[in-house]
Design a binder for these strands. Structure first.
Lengths: 156, 156
DNA sequence: TTAAACAGGACAGAAAAGGTACTATTTGCC
DNA sequence: GGCAAATAGTACCTTTTCTGTCCTGTTTAA
């Protein structure tokens, strides 16, 4: 139906892990290699996720030796929509969107112009109440080999 | 953010056009070539859209000479979600969601597993109130700079 | 000075989407 | 009965996008 990037899912995992590791606001930092190990994901992939999260202002990167990442905000103050936007970009309903403005000029038949906006708004509204904290499990959750599983799933 | 197939958009156009042409329940039928002309889309593409809509039970195909398509239901009784499902499949937020339950045997380790469900539900709920009729405009439709705007949004 | 770690960009392989073409089947009409 | 129109289904090729990885540069604690 609607597709999210896998990186978005990874991001939630990484963010959850950061919180579990105490890499929170004002806390100590966690390195990308460390997160790669604890999440079971490949290190370059974790790095990529963290870089994007950093650009989005969701995590704070500390450079240099003894550097790493920590959450820029508590997860419960981090709207899921921000994560999605960071990885998937703003709502993009393909279609009339595809260049060729001139091709569309001749078509005053198209009854759909701009009509997806209510849908987009509805989805944004639906997402507005959800934070990353709502997607991360409580403490009891053990480290995840899941990443490997996820990759297997991807393989299909 | 969230991506829909182009065909989904085409479908809304075609459905709207069918209604405009009076190809409604119990009405006359409209042919795929005819719809291609009136919508400005390529004929094979229109055919593809109509076939899928037919399989989804949203339009009724009449075979043979003088055949064509008509709406299986009024647009206001046609949830947009059904159209989306027909073209984009059920909600599939990354890996864990679609199929292959057994591949995720270590599911109790995955902090995210099943956690996207609330998101999916929220989106489904948001869409549940929207019908195709809500997306089809009355006759005098404005040209599309809106599409260009959307495109710019996407581009970033 | 060195090493650890982030930052940024670039790239090849893989997957999916988009569009098209071809064939088979059905059915109204002469 | 035959022809033509139109849907139904399938398969294919091209293009685009995604994914994951690598490389180089920059920063900074020890």
């Amino acid at each position: 139906m609607l597709r999210l990037s896998k990186l978005t899912d990874y991001a939630v995992v990484v963010l959850s892990r950061l919180e579990q590791d105490g890499a929170v606001v004002g806390g100590r930092v966690q390195t990308a290699p460390g997160l790669a190990i604890s999440t079971g994901m490949a290190e370059p992939t974790v790095s990529k996720v963290l870089k994007i999260l950093g650009q989005a202002g969701l995590v704070e990167g500390v450079r240099g030796a003894r550097g790493g990442y920590r959450l820029a905000r508590p997860l419960h103050a981090m709207p899921l929509a921000e994560v999605i936007v960071a990885f998937d970009g703003p709502i993009a309903l393909t279609a009339c969107v595809d260049g060729s403005v001139n091709a569309c000029e001749t078509e005053d038949h198209c009854p759909v112009r701009g009509r997806w906006d209510p849908v987009n708004d509805a989805i944004r509204h639906a997402l507005s109440g959800i934070t990353v904290a709502d997607l991360s499990t409580p403490a009891g959750c053990a480290p995840m080999r899941a990443a490997a599983s996820i990759m297997n799933l991807m393989a299909e």
